[in-house]
Design a binder for these strands. Sequence first.
DNA 1: TTAGGGTTAG
Length: 797
Amino acid sequence: MTCEDDKVVLTDFQAKKLTALEQIRSRKFLAAFQSIRDLVVMAEEEEEEETYFRTSRKVDQALQRFTSEAFVAPYEGAAARRRIMLGMDAVALQLSSNLAPPYDTVPKRVYLNALRALTVMNEMQQSAGYGGNATTSLGADSTYSPFRILQRLVTGVGIRRKEAGSCTAYSNESIQEKDFNMVLNSFSNMGRMDMAHKIVALQERTENAPPLSPVGYSILVKGYGRRGDLRNVDMIVAHAKANGIVPDRIMLNSLIDAYVNCNAMDKAKTLFDCMAKGGSSSHRGTLKWVRNPDSGEVPRPNQRTYNTILKGLAKSGSLKEVLSMSQKMEMKRLWDDVTTNTLVHAAVLNGNFDLAEAVLDRHTSSANARANRGRRRNEHPNVEAYTELLDGYSKASQLNNALQVMQTMKDRGVEPNEFTYTCLIAAFARHGQVDKAKKTIRYMTTTGGLKPTAVTYNAFISALLSLPEGQQDERDDDQCSRAVLPAPTDDQVDEAIGIFYDMMRSGIRPNDVTLATLIIALGRCRPAPRIEEAKELVGKLEKNGIVSYKNNHKVVTALVQSCGLSGDINGALDWFRMLKRPDLVAVNAFLDACCRCGYEDVAMKTFRHFFGPGDGGSSAILQPSVISFSILIRALLKKDTVPASEDAQILYIEMKDAQKLFPDQAMVDLVLKTVIRTGKLQKKDVPLVASIVRDAKELEWRPGQLERRRRAIKAVLSSRSRLLSVWNDEDDDILLREIKSEDTLLKRKGWNKVDSGFRLWGGGKMDIQVEGENDRPVDEFLESKGWNDMESGFRIF
DNA sequence: TTAGGGTTAG
């Protein structure tokens, strides 16, 4: 190579580099990346050593310039995603290049920037509802990238040493714990506990990596708590204890919240008690762990602690408990906007709209920007409560009151947001006012300056598919529990599909929930299922790359269920087989499909395959749920034979003894409905019914559930049976009246154990006939069964 | 770095 040639090459190179820098400046990232790729090749081909080194350094400068721009905020949106992934491509390019060392490695700072960009981006996309369509040009999954970067950071592979050419060993000591925690937190927020676990494992087995601190444990506990995974929450706590972790207030708050999310209020209350009472708490064991061994102090509860426990009480306890706790908070001056929102939540959950209105009357914040720091821009701190109240009215078929909430918001200067509009749109749709729902979408976009989301349309569609007001009573008695929503009509389904196309036309990508909703609707619609249309729809969307159903559990499960509903067992089987690792919901859907199509034997085999032999051993692939048992028990009872009823009973016992599961409302409804036909309860079914209703005695019934239960009872009553269980909820007028009249009756009969869990109710005559036992006095019958009538919670008269 | 509050959902 002559001196002349050399000059030309350098000039070319410089020109290219200038182009690249200009492209970066004008944010043409793809073009810039391509230019840099050319630069890399040019440098690699350089033969003269010093020039090779010099050009390599210049390429590195360009690369660093590129990545520092690529990994900068904002991290939201498709363009940001492309930019960040190009940044990752640039990192990969440099690592795989033959640039002169150390320029074939990447400075630590770049990795750290990438880490931040990737984690924030992944979390945002998760919440934006991107499906599994995320792949990069290198085929790398953006979910794994943060993990791989951390791996590099701890091993030093591909990381530039401080001084060029230095031979000193890479030291990972300067990797901050917060770098790990940032990634851990993002996986935890995404619900990817598998990945979170990988991070922890990496941290634990790497020398010099920072050990898990209360911060890391807080993050893990949060993640498992959100998934309702009590077992792993407990496991993390045990791990922390074993490692001598002294929990701080945040960790305890996280733990209380996790317990609340896992419906483990007893544990949440214990912890709260320790924090509130400190040394005087009676929970010695917990106290021992929670207390700081040096100072002897126990972290004191703060506003968040109280709000968290309040949320738990709202979820599981009575309104009374919530009210007394909120009064305590007010006295301690710990009341804030979250308290207001939580109290409204509790009130709405209990159907006590007056209370919700009263709380908002008194506690609505005067909107000020300072209160909103860290939240969405200038949003009123109580929109959430108003939104929930609106939604509550709408779901309780009180459209006018729902609309009145919009007016109240306006009067009080509470600006509706996309959540509020979503609920309003669903409210219109639920009441058959489709045009107004559509208008609201337009209104929120234009006047409100808000964008409807996939959830907006999903809410619209599913509200449409639920029966409009006025037709509620026409449901057949199949539809007594939430587990069985009313079957939509052809017209409703057509309307829903129309909205679905509106959605796509306005450029909003349907997600798996959208698709699953439509699939189920098509599978169940009246007068005949339209399963073929469902399959076509899925195929079309897949072909056009709009939604990918492959490996999408929700969509495939919906197809399994839909096939089952329309008697297509082969279809159900085909779709079910597509799932490499079916989850509980999928297995339940398949069990249901088998049973509906008359393949109880296949169902039973499937049940054993996934849930094990029922000995409580650990050979099971999955843990069954009450639903799994409900499906099989119903199928068995439907067979209406003595051996099948016995099998049902055995399954029920297995559910309680081996699986420690107890019946829920749906199961009670289902069994009652299946077993009580033509007013007769057959002898073979008595033991099962008796134990189920007795076990269900502790169930908590909320107004919505009470309503369903009331319908179930109505169904039972209308089938000439008299069957009633005892309610503790004094809020429900109708049931109260029924119980009162029942109590009168019991008094007249001289029976005063009204607290027993279960009564059969009839105007003094025996309405439930126990086949073959009609003539025998009840007490004799019970005695013959070895039942103590009241203690067994079962009385026949 | 980490903790509490609203919409759809098999």
